[in-house]
Every structure is written in C-alpha cells, then in structure tokens.
Design a protein around this nucleic acid. Structure first.
Lengths: 356, 356
DNA sequence: TTGAAAGCGATACCAC
DNA sequence: GTGGTATCGCTTTCAA
C-alpha cells in the first residue's frame, strides 16, 4: 500500500488537515510542525493519490467546450473521433463537455458558437479555427476572462491560446522533399501543387519542400513552377494532364493540398502510372485506397486523431492542476504512410467499451 | 453535473445500495424495483463515475509486476522509459508496481525473477520474454493461478498470455520491401542482412521482405543471398565490404537485425555513400545520427515507448474491470523515419511533472 | 495555529 | 429484499 496523508499525520502526531495545509503550503501552520511534516513526507516518498484528489474536484464541476469546423472533410472526421473519445472518457470522470460540430468554414457561425458556449459557462475551449483577426481578438478576450483556449489542426499564431496542436507543415514539406530525393534519380523533374494561394498550411508545406530542395548539398531535382489547384480535383486533374503532356520526363508530383484524386486520375489516364512518384497528405479512406492501388506512392499524415483527443485532456489538466502544456506548439508526428504500413484501425484508436 | 447513483435512488424512492445492486445485477432486489431503476438510469443516461469507482478499488490493493530483459540495448531503454512512466502514473493512483530490469538474456534469471515477484504477491505480470518452452510453461502456470501475463517487445506464441504488444515483423519487412521498390530502379541489386539464423523476429522481417519482392507484379529487384551478421557490426562490416567489392552495381542494403553501423561504415569506406540506399531498424540515438549524416536512408521504428507504456494499463484494466485487451496481438505502428521526421523527443513521450 | 467533521461517488457489509 | 453506514484518500470549512 502506498503511503497516505493519514499515515503521515499519525507519525507527525497531527491531523490530516494540518498535513494537507503543510504539504500544500497553504499557510496557517506552525513552521516547525510544517518542517517535520515535510521531512516525513519526503522520507516516505509520499505522493498524493490522484484518485482521491480527483474525487474532491468533482465538487467544483468542470465544463469544457469544443468547436470543430469543416466536419464534412475526411480529416476532420478523424479529428472528431478523437475529440468524441476524449469527451466520453472525461464525462466518465464527471466533466461536462459541450461539442459543436460545424460544417464548412463560417466565421460568423464560429463566433456565435463561442458566444453560446461561454453563456453556458464553459471554463475552457478547444477549437479548430480560421486564422482571422476577429477570431484572434475573440480568443484574446476569452483569455482575459480566464477561459483558456487551445487551437487544434490549424493555428492562430500570436493569439493568446495556451497552445496549438497540429502539424508542423514546414517540417512536413521538408520530409516530402527528403523522400522525393530518395525516390528519384538526379535531374528528375518534379511538379509541386498547392491549394489556395493564401492558405498558410499549404504554403508552409510548399516552402519546406522548396527550401529543402534548394539547400546546398541537396539532391538535384528540377522543380517546375508550382500550380494552385484550389483544393479541387478537377483543376488538379487539368493541371496534371497538361504538365504530363508538356513534360514527358516528369516523374514526381508533390501535392501539398487536396486534389490528389484528380492528380492520380490524370496520371493514370496518361498511361504514366508507376512512372510518376506522387506524395500527398492525410491518411483517410480515399487516400488509403489510392495507396493500395499504387496510385499514390506516399502519404504524409498528421495524426488527426491525436489533434482531437489531446486538447480536452490538456484543458482538464490546466483547469484541474493549473498545469500549462509542455510547449506552446505541440506538433503531431509526421507519419510516413505507404501501402504496407497504413492501417486506419490502429489499436490505440479504438473506442472504449461503454460501461453500463 | 453528471447524474449520480444518489439521484437515481431519490427518483426511484429507494436507497443508493439498492440502486447499486440493481444496476450491477447483483441480485437481492425486487424485480419490479430493479426494472424501475434500470429504466430511470437509462433515461438519465447514467454512467458510473470512474473516479468514484477507482477510489473504492484502492481498498483492494493492486500489485503488478514487470520484467524487462536486455535493458542495456538502446531499444529496450526506450521500452523501459515507457514502462517507468506508466508505473509512476499508476503508482499515483494507488497501484503497487514492482519492476525488475535485467541485463542480457538469461532465462534462469527470468524464471527466478518471476518466482520472486509471485512470492511478493503480484496479481499481473508484464514481461519481455525469450521464446522458450520453460517460459511458456511458466506463463501458462501463472495463467492457471489467475495471474494474467502480457508479453511485450517479443512474444511467446501459443502461450496463455492475455496479449502481446510489439512489432509485426513480417509486415515491417513488407514495408521495407515497398520502400526499396520506391527508391530503386528496376533491376537494382539488393543485399539483405539478418542477425542470428534462429531469431524469429529477424526471420520474419526477412521473409516479409523477400516474399513481397517475389510476389507477382512486384517491382523487379535482384536480391543477393542473405547473410547472417549475428547482430555484430564487425561481421556486418566485413559482409558489406565484400558484397560491395563483388557487386559494383549493389545499390540497396536491407538490415533486418543489428549491425547497421558496420554496414554504413563499410559503405562509406568504399566510397559508395549516397549511392547505396540502406534501410535499418529502430529509432534510437545511434540510428538518429546515422540518419542525420545521410548514412541511413530510412529507419523502421517499432514504437518501443508504447510497448513499455501500455502493458501496465492493460493489466490494470484487466484486474480492475475484468476487461480483456481488444486483441490478442496488439501490433505497434510501423513508423517510417527519415532525416526529417525523426524527433526522439515527441511531446507525448515526456514525463509528467512530479506533483509534490 | 490546529483539529474535527463533512463530503466527493461508488461499493460492501451488516443488520433488519 | 432493503436501508443504513463505513470506507477509500483527499480537500475544505468551521470551530476552537
């Protein structure tokens, strides 16, 4: 049996209350007694039992909110799974949890939802935001009110969110560059595709890619001018088709955004499947299929489940023990997925049994 | 606030005790009353508060044991980190935890340690075993005594351990084959290295690799006869040197065992660095350096931290809620690591603050 | 400055 | 069958 506060109290010849005040430096305790208590606790290696602590905290009831956007996309659906799982686990420990799942990107709706959640008295918020100044101000406002915010999947840099969890897109771009170098011989021609011109995530993926390939000592690849496909498969298809016809020696395509299905289809139609290495993003159902059919060579994944799963716990720790997240930027793993190591059903992603 | 058993009791006009018996079907309760209670609980979506439950369980004190072998190796040191972290977390919830960390592989010592732990009254055991029939029998014996065992890192197939957590080595070999195909042009010559001839893990890695390359429709690589290097860098060095001299067109080396440092050194000495793609196993400090210096192209990692971290929790759940692990074989992720995505210090690997 | 006691939620035991 | 009560470890309040 682990040592309890009661045991310390008996050894010190005082009551549990005094031990508690002493060990937590709450004052109102004779310095000599306090010193003795600390000594005994250290000798016995006392650690407060977290279960006991947690039970007490259930008196002050916690209420945490979460807002997801674009829940219709495959990646956000995985984020949502993670969020739901965390919510269900925390609810089982007595935490109240309110989730708003929004379709599309609608700043108005987001601001409304925040309003709604705060009026319901949430004490912390996890959100997948747009990067706009209104939302930044809103988050800063919540911070001033003492409501911690965590951004997930995409960030609002410079805002007063206590942390961000998501992909390091620049690093991911570097990773893609490294893989292209491994796969292609010197002098190969590569086409980079991005989404919207002002999408920070995609731009970072592109810059990481280009910077790395231009470093001194980097492998020698010939990079075509990058093309925006606006996350659309039809545009991506057209761009790819055109590039393939113009460049019979095109052997690599880097898709920093959505549009990979259009790319793969074009490559297939032009009869170049297997001759062109394609790297795309996010391990979801459609991309799994493209990997299995050898259409995509590699998918870089951002561990979307984690992005949903962790924020509730981070907020809980913050509220419960005033514990700050380890870092302001919690980058998820950059997972390299191929045909052979891409299992959507990893064991640690399963939902726990509902206990009746 | 979540709904509590007390509230149900009030609504049903009975006492908490009756509610408890009814909901857990412990009998000794009027069927009509039981039905009413079940109805109310369902309506209110009652879930027992896990914290409250956990607190009660601290009365019956849990004692869990763990045995690690070969703790002097880089990989097992990561496993150990995971194990220690889990131990420290569970201790903070009142679970007793006894860990034996053994150097080398010594079956006698392992059997002794098991004896010692059981005599101390452990109710569950996590162990990184050797695959011998004595140990299998021992594990089966523990099972008969009602002491669940989990094997980690390496398995004893067919024994009555409740589950195994570790790498799917065959799948890893397939993954390596897939990567070699992506990296090398058709007709390339590849040298496969293994460790001991009877090491199951290495053999599986090798077979997965060879099988995949020989499948119909697979890419066309010429595989040299595989060589055992007995996990030694000096042998690996010699084998590699010889192979490189004999085969000026050798452009790929697959190292299914240890010995990668010898391989890299030989490639470097022969002036072939950058011309030969090398795939090896396990992301540890030495391999990180080899990745950074572009000596290794790719490392396949087995998530050693997880292998240590999860078994204690699985045992705890098993003992606490009689919950079986989801599967008998819990395969850890096959992580593909390159120079750019190999960070030993991922955020989810950090030790929690010690709470005073 | 200190102790005694209540209470968090669930369970187990013992009377009735 | 059922209700009352003690208990797990800790925090908090109220008296003293």
């Amino acid at each position: 049996m682990a040592v309890t506060a009661q045991q310390i109290a008996e050894l010190a010849g005082v009551s549990r209350g005094t031990v508690d005040r002493a060990l937590h430096n709450r004052g109102r305790v004779n310095p000599e007694v306090a010193a003795r208590i600390h000594q005994i606790a250290a000798d016995l290696g006392y650690k407060p039992n977290l279960v006991g602590q947690a039970l007490v905290r259930t008196k002050r009831d916690f209420k945490i909110g979460a807002i997801l956007q674009s829940v219709e996309t495959p990646t956000m659906q995985i984020v949502r799974e993670g969020l739901r799982r965390a919510a269900s686990e925390l609810r089982a420990s007595g935490v109240e949890f309110i989730v708003r799942e929004l379709r599309g990107l609608d700043e108005e709706l987001v601001l409304e939802s925040i309003e709604e959640l705060t009026s319901q008295g949430i004490q912390g918020l996890a959100i997948s935001p747009n990067n706009t100044s209104e939302l930044r101000q809103c988050i800063n406002g919540l911070y001033e009110q003492g409501i911690p915010v965590i951004t997930l999947n995409s960030d609002i840099p410079g805002s007063k969110r206590i942390c961000f969890i998501g992909m390091d897109n620049y690093r991911a771009g570097q990773t893609a560059a490294g893989l292209m170098c491994q796969m292609l011989p010197a002098g190969s021609k590569v086409l980079p595709l991005a989404g919207h011109l002002n999408n920070t995530a995609h731009n970072n993926r592109l810059n990481g890619f280009l910077d790395t390939l231009q470093q001194p000592g980097a492998c020698d690849l010939r990079i075509l001018p990058f093309q925006p496909c606006f996350d659309r498969d039809d545009y991506a298809h057209e761009i790819t088709q055109h590039a393939l016809r113009e460049n019979p020696d095109l052997v690599g395509i880097y898709v920093a955004s959505n549009g990979q299905e259009g790319v793969c289809q074009a490559v297939d139609e032009e009869g170049r499947k297997g001759q062109v290495k394609i790297i795309a993003y996010d391990l979801n159902e459609p991309n799994m299929r493209l990997l299995q059919s050898d259409s995509l060579s590699i998918v870089l994944d951002q561990e979307a489940f984690e992005q949903g799963y962790r924020p509730p716990y981070l907020l809980y720790e913050y509220l419960m023990h005033k514990k700050q997240p380890e870092r302001e930027l919690l980058y998820t793993d950059i997972a390299i997925r191929t045909k052979y190591n891409s299992d959507l059903m990893r064991f640690d992603r399963e939902l726990p049994d509902s206990k009746a």
